[in-house]
Amino acid sequence: MSQYHLNYLEQLEAESIYIFREVAAQFEKPALLFSGGKDSIVMVHLARKAFAPGKIPFPLVHVDTGHNFPEALQFRDWLANEVGATLVVRKVEDTIKQRSLTEPKGKFPSRNWLQTYTLLDTIEEFAFDACIGGARRDEEKARAKERIFSVRDEFGQWNPKLQRPELWNIYNGRIHKGENVRVFPISNWTELDIWNYIRKEKIDLPSIYFAHDREVIEHEGQLVAMSEYVQPSADDKIITKRVRYRTVGDMTCTAAVESNASNLDEVIEEIIATRISERGETRIDDKVTEAAMEDRKKNGYF
């Protein structure tokens, strides 16, 4: 093998850095949508490399549903400070009040759908013309079809039948006033790639990604953390289990997995051995209809 060889992680990294730089060069007001999960933490790491020794030239924007894990919020604040980035936080709670939106009800009242309103308001408030997101194409079938530069109309809507051809490594970010582009620099990464990269680069993560004891209730085979946002029924048993999180979203729509994996090697070993996909195992919100993600994207979702 020649000395001029990049392995697959180095190739993915080079591609993502290229995309970050295109965003910074082509747009006037980009923003990085930061969820607090491992994918957006990896994105911050890549952005830092892309612009070193300078600072990341756009803010981190967090749409806070109010249902986040406290560990993820603490980590968010620490990371923004660590990399010297501006952090913009907009709360779904405020949008609900301002726009008198109806809160979802039920045992696990998910604000996932309502995030879109806050996101679109935030885009308008700051006039962001590009929003960088951490979606990966391996996550879900509709995402597998979305371009890396995905043009959204003024309502934030994705039109899957009118996507621009995206050729070679040429990204066309030209838009009309009022439109914006969602950019997905880690489109070509898989869950395992992310974990292997985190290990290779020694990237810090919130503690909930590793095994810990937690009070949970069992819901249709999934373990949901007890919190003030969950409304257990009388017959739900609250049990303490050793768990970790494979994805980190809202406390109401993210399930934990039973695990003893307390470090990266053990987590990666478990992921290689698992036979259930990331979203299937841990997301309570994707199962409703077969086209759930496609529908949300058409409405302006990430």
Binding site: R137, A144, K145, P160, K161, S187, N188
Partner: peptide
């Protein structure tokens, strides 16, 4: 209709 990307290793 459109290009779908798939990943495996």
């Amino acid at each position: 209709i459109d290009v779908a990307y798939r990943y495996f290793s």
